[in-house]
Design a protein around this nucleic acid. Sequence first.
DNA 1: CCAATTATGCTGAGTTATAGCAATATTATT
DNA 2: AATAATATTGCTATAACTCAGCATAATTGG
Lengths: 391, 391
Amino acid sequence: MDHGEMHHHNTARTLDILYRSSPITMAKLRKESGLARRTIEVILENLIAKGWAKDSEASAKGVRSVGRPARTFSFSYDAACILAIQLEAGHISATVADLAANPLAARRQVLPIATSRQERFRLLGECIEVLLTEVGRTRSSVLAVTVSTPGIVQDDGTVELPFTMPEWSGFSLSEAVGQLFDCPVQVENDAKLAALGEKNIGGLDTQDFVYLYSDSERLGIGLVLRNELRRGVDGAAGEISWAPALGLRSLTSPLLVDFDDEGSPNYQPARDLVARAREGDARALAEVDKLAQTLAPGITAIAWLLAPQEIILGGGLGEIQDLLVPALERILQRNERPITTLIRGSKFGQECILNGCLRMCIESLGEILFEASELSTLSADPVVSAEAAHV
Amino acid sequence: MDHGEMHHHNTARTLDILYRSSPITMAKLRKESGLARRTIEVILENLIAKGWAKDSEASAKGVRSVGRPARTFSFSYDAACILAIQLEAGHISATVADLAANPLAARRQVLPIATSRQERFRLLGECIEVLLTEVGRTRSSVLAVTVSTPGIVQDDGTVELPFTMPEWSGFSLSEAVGQLFDCPVQVENDAKLAALGEKNIGGLDTQDFVYLYSDSERLGIGLVLRNELRRGVDGAAGEISWAPALGLRSLTSPLLVDFDDEGSPNYQPARDLVARAREGDARALAEVDKLAQTLAPGITAIAWLLAPQEIILGGGLGEIQDLLVPALERILQRNERPITTLIRGSKFGQECILNGCLRMCIESLGEILFEASELSTLSADPVVSAEAAHV
DNA sequence: CCAATTATGCTGAGTTATAGCAATATTATT
DNA sequence: AATAATATTGCTATAACTCAGCATAATTGG
């Protein structure tokens, strides 16, 4: 490590603090980073020149009693934007957000399951254009993109086995979407992203958990262990539907989804049943108990194998968490030795996957920011000029 | 990060390279570290002064044809020693090794299961003294100690629930053993340590695996994920005997252990049966198959949940790997979707746990070395004077 | 014995972080 | 309204460490 790397390291540290807690004064920045004031001054000068930070006018008046008021510095959350894309058999959804992951605009387009790959991409491109236009940005001001897809995303980026979209097997989504942007495009499995979305909400608490994501009858698992999303070899981690022993192959509870005679999913009867369970209807509650019974052995196994801090119920399971969590707790208490892992419902509903995509963008921001600042060049002005749009 | 920390960082880097590949010349050290020659020179000067490195005379003659021969530098593997201790109901085992984890002396003392805690500690102290005397060291020249125990080692260091040693529940082994040494004493569960022992043997390959360790009929699991041993909340990870769904609660195969009428384990019949299986005896092979059938669902579940690079069979299972691995492969191939994880036997036998203890010592060496070098003071002479022994 | 080659010892230059002084802007006090 | 107290800021000098490179030393091959 030479002086340049040391400087880089200190810049990253400062930027990280700035990102997490702006606006911030020099005094706090010093205290947090442990660096000398002059050092931070120089770093901030550079960051401001490159557009990643700014001198915010909002000096917190009245908070401190005496002395010269401190300047406050802020991360430029609006210096660029990030993009979350959820691709599923039945719809395309996307959200543009600023660098703080605050959504700026969202769009959801329902489409027939039989839609061809080519058509899906046409619609996706359209969707992106509309969204970016809506917020007054261009594709070149997108810093990171994350795409969610069903199926296993292998290490080489190709997608495998999304039952509902056979055309996608062996296809490299990251390459296809990557052509639209000159920033990193990450692709990941939906359950894993849903899990990621639950990470570090608010404080720094949730860093070690197993996330159960149910979509209709399919159950996928996302693992966040020691603050890190686990992909496993070739992205196969969490694909427990292939492991009969856990008893989580598929969840056929009428609380989650009902199927008509032709095998099409029908959610209304399930909602009705849930409503009845909330009213205390005995038969409906029996269904809750039955579902909990189905889940309990698998949850017990996961809890003892990994001993995560939490096991989180998401997707369809999350929507009935008020019913399911207490039922599960009752059953799990009867275990020979009770598990120490906390069982709880997800804090997000439908939006959990797009949320996870945003989070993944944010997590890769650190590296991206530095690569980009090497090139310097992002204008501080959030709206990029039209001539840069074709890049 | 200031200049001091930068220097510290570079020293750590140099020391790490030196540790992994000494003896080494300056040219290679430069290439590996990317640092300027002068920088390394200064660092080496300090390290040599403190006794962690030395100028080895063994200049590799004849290897290079022309030019002034290069000095070679070596890590002082004999500057101190590390200690591995295995405590079990039926015996105390310990190994002293140099800093390269080469065993210098080992000792194994069988004792009655009913031995009291106090007596066990007396014997352990004796054992340690004998070992250290044997290699001409004192307790103050021990840099790291790792202790293996059955049961769950909680985050606060207390041990819970070793069936065979009820006196140990709620007892802090690390504190008790720690009083004997003024270096860090780590305590860990036996299966976890056995797993750790399998890590990075030879090259840098094995960094992500699940280790099945069977001792008599008990089965414990050690997880090494992304090169890191997983403890889980309160060290509960891998305690799958509490998870019936995996079907690995206990292994009652006559291939592993037989029990007489009083319930005492008897290993001879098991060994005879294994021998017959190796000779091709059909009935014995049927037992192999039966055991594989028992293991297969749990292995499948683990493989899909975590998708580790490897699943390794250790302990009793490792001893019959030649029979078990092929049998398992046959069965696993019949899975609806075959797993991608490689199944193989452990490369170690009985010594796997002590080996894992040594590895854990080595892993903590980095930090210890720096704390110690802050105090400087370890004499380059391996044998410490008698007056320092009482510390 | 000399040229070629490679490693070493050491000095000087360059970069960055830190320490600290004087100036500045605000609140509390008289 | 003037003054004291307090906290922040702008800036210069100092210190620490890495890096580049020159002259020297030790070896092999012809």
